[in-house]
Amino acid sequence: MEKRLIDVALRHGLNDYIIPKWKAIFSIKDHFENLMGKSVYSVLPGVVENTFKF
């Protein structure tokens, strides 16, 4: 998700709403992670392998 947000910001630029929007997105992500008890990345197929390359 972080890579996608940065990619969009680089292509389209920033405005006054981007930081509050990102904070809201991460707040929603945190909410669901707390409900699930684990990272959302761990339950989405292929995300860990494609995003966090070691």
Rank of each mutant, 00 (worst) to 15 (best):
F32H: 05
H31L: 11
L10K: 15
H31K: 08
H12A: 15
H12K: 15
V40E: 06
G46C: 04
L44V: 14
G46F: 02
K38Y: 04
V8G: 07
I19V: 14
G37I: 03
V43Y: 03
P45L: 04
K23P: 02
K29C: 07
L44Q: 10
V40A: 03
D16T: 08
K3T: 14
I18V: 12
Y41E: 15
W22Y: 11
D30T: 04
K3I: 12
V43W: 00
V43T: 01
E33Y: 03
G13C: 10
W22I: 14
H31F: 12
R4Q: 14
K21W: 11
N34W: 05
S42Y: 02
M36T: 06
P45H: 00
Y17H: 11
K29N: 04
P45A: 05
W22T: 12
S42H: 04
K23F: 03
I28Q: 00
I19N: 08
Y17R: 12
M36I: 09
H31S: 06
S39W: 08
P45M: 05
K23E: 10
N15L: 01
W22K: 07
V43R: 03
I19P: 02
G46P: 05
Y41G: 14
A24K: 09
L44S: 10
G13A: 09
L10R: 15
A9E: 12
M1G: 08
I28S: 06
K23S: 08
K23V: 13
D30K: 10
W22N: 07
L14D: 09
V8A: 14
H12V: 15
W22V: 15
I19C: 05
E2Q: 12
F32Y: 07
K38F: 04
I28N: 04
A9Y: 11
I25W: 00
P20I: 03
K23H: 08
D7Q: 13
K38W: 00
R4T: 15
G13I: 11
V43D: 04
I19Y: 01
N15Y: 02
